[in-house]
């Protein structure tokens, strides 16, 4: 028997989920709650196997609930059921230890499959969530390969060219019609992108990577 608890502040939605689960013989619904406080109270009193958790709760964020319960009940499986499909929310919830993430347009088959997958000790994410996370990973992969092939803006290239020509910050600012502070901020970005520690390092990387050749 899989014991399930639903935390969602939309009564209609929670009831809908309930009616989807009720037909399954191996599922047992232990309760529903519309606030973070009620959820914590019920889950502590009568611990379920799986918690269906909404992020957007009226009193406290679902993130907070996830964080607290992760520490108190390490065996509890948390399946996020949310409207948010942004990478920031998804990665935050995964970072807090949720094992599954579904969007609220899910169906019965997927919901049941997700619950069973979680109970078997694996993780489950719906297709859209997987896509979002993958896209994020691709982006960060390009960022980590940036060292060998850094993406340098046209403005930074101009600044770099003038640095290699041994111009001072003030001269660069005058030539490019920008403030000295802005030159400094371009320089800071260049240092970070090229992994250099000082101007000499910048010049070295610029020549090595042939950044100034068009």
């Amino acid at each position: 028997m899989i014991r399930i608890f639903i935390a969602d502040d939309h009564v209609m939605f929670a009831e809908g989920v309930e009616s989807l689960l009720i037909g399954e013989p191996d599922f047992l619904l232990t309760g529903k709650a519309g606030t973070a406080a009620d959820t914590l109270k019920h889950v502590r009193l009568n611990p379920p196997d799986v918690l269906l958790l909404d992020i957007n709760l009226p009193d406290q964020s679902g993130m907070e609930v996830c964080k607290v319960l992760r520490e108190e009940q390490p065996d509890l499986k948390i399946l996020v059921l949310s409207m948010f499909s942004e990478e920031s929310y998804i990665t935050a919830m995964l970072g807090l230890g949720a094992q599954g993430y579904l969007l609220k347009n899910t169906g019965k088959t997927e919901l049941c499959a997700a619950i069973r997958t979680l109970v078997s000790g694996k993780t489950y994410f719906c297709q859209e969530v997987t896509d979002v996370v993958m896209r994020g990973l691709m982006q960060s992969r390009t960022a980590s390969t940036a060292k060998e092939n850094p993406k340098i803006s046209r403005r930074e290239k101009e600044v770099l060219r003038l640095i290699v020509e041994e111009r001072t910050t003030q001269e660069i600012a005058t030539e490019l019609f920008i403030s000295e502070k802005t030159v400094e901020s371009h320089r800071a970005a260049l240092l970070a992108k090229l992994g250099a520690r000082n101007t000499a390092g910048l010049v070295k990387s610029a020549l090595q990577l042939k950044l100034l050749e068009d």
Partner: peptide, 18 residues
């Protein structure tokens, strides 16, 4: 609105299941 739509969606789903 979003919450209500999601609720409607899940009710349709439950209708299908029944």
């Amino acid at each position: 609105v979003g919450g209500m739509l999601a609720a409607t969606r899940i009710q349709v789903e439950s209708l299908l299941a029944k």
